[in-house]
Design a protein around this nucleic acid. Structure first.
Lengths: 218, 218
DNA sequence: TCGGATATAGGTATTAATACTTACGATCAA
DNA sequence: TTGATCGTAAGTATTAATACCTATATCCGA
């Protein structure tokens, strides 16, 4: 399954889970078991000792002492090249987000089968990442903010965009009128529409909107 | 790795990072650990005691008391020959600029690998400097113009800053006057001064300035 | 072809911002 | 103590922006 050898360590407060994981990986080639721990602090101690020898840490989330997230953060800050796979009983949005923030390489549920588990490890050891299906809503939410920006921009007409860009460049309505070869009155109408569409109180709001929306600013 | 011996000192409020660094350098020849500190003030005390014996100080940026930047400045002014490597969690333009201004010999991210870390130290001890690849674009593209902005921000008075923050929040001079319990006339004076100091044509320029200068925007 | 959206433009009024000026008390550094 | 800076405030004018209104020609899609 793997190209090169993988030195792994398992952290879980249920010895049964550890045994299960060992059972699965024992059958696979190129896996070397470096040790395990049943709580957060013991895990940290042992992991720091092992340090550079490690390739992969498989850890549960909920443990006494400190969580798998904490361990992941510490591992990643001390030994950035070590991969971390988090296994969790729960499909909780907050936890998944925390795992991503802690730079975990993977997140799978304990309800996952052996197939998913091995696939996750393979992806991770190839330098990729593996997050179970459960993470899709999270990603959706994160991208939703970006999408809102795009949507907001999309609801502006091309002419309104033209005007907005020039407003951001500190041009007055008169300047803009000359630049676009239209009447100042027309520019003022576009301004008014921009204010309404972006929910701004004044041009200041327009500028903030433009910058947030990622409009190119010189 | 190194030609001659290198006496080093590590400053970081996370003992784990210190241990990580020690772990890495322990394996290398010609490194002598002179000590460590977990906060800015303790670091300063110990470093001033060690003084001339030092060859290299490795310091984090964010610490209680004073920052790694402050320590760097003090070390460099007291013992110019001592090298300083700054390690930071963030790839923040302002911080990198400050590090350069403080004459740090190197700046690397905590996400850097061991290889980068050792390379940085080698370069520095050879009399060169090492800034992570990730920040090169920042150095070249943003250094000059942004520096001007920051200088401009520094030259604003506290009251002008107060007013600027409220302007960015789309408040009118009247609103601001009420919020700060001063006359609208005073606010208008501050506005005028802000326009001159920032070289803006109108409030729009002030908003762009505030955002570029990294002023906190809600 | 019809309705809606868009871009255009004018009218009228009010409000806000900008551009200058002077002035005075407080505070802080030379 | 003196001079500089800052924060405060007022006066006067002008310019710009905002908030409404109506109106017309064009174009696109249903």
């Amino acid at each position: 399954m793997l190209e090169s050898n993988c030195n792994f360590f398992v952290v879980d407060d249920h010895q049964l889970i550890i045994d299960g994981i060992l059972g699965m990986l024992k059958e696979e080639a190129n896996f070397t078991f470096l040790g395990s721990a049943n709580d957060g602090y013991t895990a940290e101690e042992k992991l720091l000792e092992l340090g550079g020898q490690l390739d992969l840490v498989i850890t549960d989330i909920n443990m006494s002492g400190q969580t798998g997230i904490d361990i992941c953060k510490k591992i990643k800050s001390a030994f950035p090249s070590v991969k971390v796979l988090i296994i969790s009983m729960y499909q909780n949005n907050t936890v998944i987000r925390e795992a991503m923030m802690a730079e975990a390489d993977g997140y799978i549920l304990k309800t996952s089968g052996k197939k998913d588990f091995l696939l996750a490890i393979q992806r991770i050891m190839e330098g990729g990442s593996y997050y179970s299906e459960a993470i899709l809503p999270i990603i959706y939410q994160e991208f939703k903010k970006e999408q809102e920006k795009v949507d907001a921009l999309a609801q502006l007409t091309t002419r309104e965009l033209d005007v907005l860009k020039l407003i951001v460049q500190e041009m007055t309505s008169e300047d803009i009128a000359k630049a676009l070869f239209i009447s100042k009155k027309t520019v003022d109408n576009h301004r008014q529409n921009l204010l309404v569409k972006t929910g701004s109180k004044s041009s200041i709001g327009l500028v903030k909107f433009a910058i947030k929306a990622g409009l190119e600013i010189q």
